[in-house]
């Protein structure tokens, strides 16, 4: 009896020591604060928006909640900080938020020059075009001389200029400020074409009175890998966010859902599931988290597929198909490194 207490203490001390080694500054700050500060958009359909009772919902919000569940075991321990396109990077750099999950495109300059670390990709997007069916256009190559509604100051504006220039076509831009304004202008016929990320086009088209009167053209003219990001300089914190995202993706691949995670956490025949869910190895403590961190994540928000279907999938009014965002086994690009 005495001996077992002694060993117990030893193990606990060892664990605490191991945890302390891996402890990151951001993590301890978040833990002492008692909640995660997560930067989101001020509102983007399907990705982040407050509902009628003031709770944030959406695909990006799900990532924030997953990280909170990993750290605290409680998906509600998040303070959502709405950021605009202009304020998002300063908010992260100055420490106002611990991470950004704000459909931000992973680009070279943002990663290197702005000193951020993109920890992964949670949505593969790309810029597309929408036109009224009555226009009779079936390809973006037929858009020479069109008037285009375009949000100013975004990468979409630059992509558009590149696309038209490289195809020797001309266009007339109609600058607009917000997506809502764009919808009004487009419906009123102020422009022939509306261009933005394909997910945004689908969401916009879904709100029209008669969606079938508009078509989204097949061409995708840019790569927009969207993902959560953290500051340079605290790699341990980056690891936590990265592997939380990987848990979501791997859980779908391995068939772990919010419904069966508790059952699988008792132990399975699959060693990778066991390692992830903490019945084998010490993967949680290596991150400075609890042993059942991944269980908490999946139990709280579900796996990637569940998150997708709940917020932007085909059952929702937005109705996005998985496309590039399917698992690599289904012909998509989602590919989590192994839990080993």
């Amino acid at each position: 009896m005495k001996k077992s207490v002694f060993y117990g203490t030893l193990v606990a001390a060892g664990l605490a020591g191991g945890a302390a080694l891996a402890q990151s500054a951001t993590l301890s700050e978040v833990q002492s604060r008692g909640h995660l500060n997560c930067g989101v958009t001020t509102g983007l359909v399907g990705f982040a928006a407050p509902n009628a009772s003031g709770e944030w919902e959406g695909f990006d919000v799900g990532v924030c909640r997953a990280v909170a569940a990993a750290v605290f075991g409680d998906a509600t321990a998040v303070e959502f900080v709405p950021t605009t396109g202009q304020t998002r990077f300063t908010a992260l750099a100055s420490g106002e938020v611990d991470m950004l999950a704000r459909n931000t495109t992973w680009t070279f300059s943002r990663d290197v020059d702005l000193a951020f670390e993109f920890v992964g990709i949670n949505y593969y997007d790309g810029q597309g075009f929408m036109v009224p069916r009555a226009l009779g256009v079936s390809s973006a190559m037929e858009l020479d001389g069109a008037t285009v509604c375009i949000q100013t100051g975004t990468t979409t504006e630059l992509n558009l200029a590149d696309f038209f220039a490289s195809n020797n076509m001309s266009y007339e831009p109609v600058p607009i400020e917000t997506n809502a304004e764009a919808q009004q202008q487009f419906l009123a016929g102020a422009c022939d074409v509306y261009t933005t990320d394909a997910s945004g086009l689908a969401a916009t088209r879904a709100t029209f009175e008669d969606p079938s009167a508009y078509v989204v053209l097949p061409e995708i003219i840019s790569k927009e890998p969207l993902g959560p990001l953290v500051r340079h300089g605290d790699n341990e914190w980056g690891d936590i966010v990265r592997w939380t995202l990987n848990v979501l993706i791997a859980a779908e691949e391995l068939g772990i859902t919010s419904a069966n995670v508790m059952e699988l956490a008792q132990g399975t025949d699959n060693p990778e599931i066991n390692r992830m869910l903490g019945t084998e190895g010490e993967y949680g403590p290596m991150l400075g988290l609890s042993q059942d961190w991944a269980v908490n994540v999946i139990a709280a928000v579900g796996n990637y597929g569940e998150l997708f279907e709940q917020n932007i999938g085909e059952a929702t009014p937005i109705g996005l198909s998985r496309g590039l965002n399917a698992q690599w086994t289904d012909g998509g690009l989602l590919y989590s490194p192994p839990f080993r």
């Binding site: 359909v45 928006a49 407050p50 809502a180 009004q184 916009t204 709100t207 929702t316 009014p317």
Partner: peptide, 16 residues
Amino acid sequence: GFSNSIRASTDWNGVY
């Protein structure tokens, strides 16, 4: 700002 957030919910997207 809230009018944007409200429009960003799937229920009310399109209300202007």
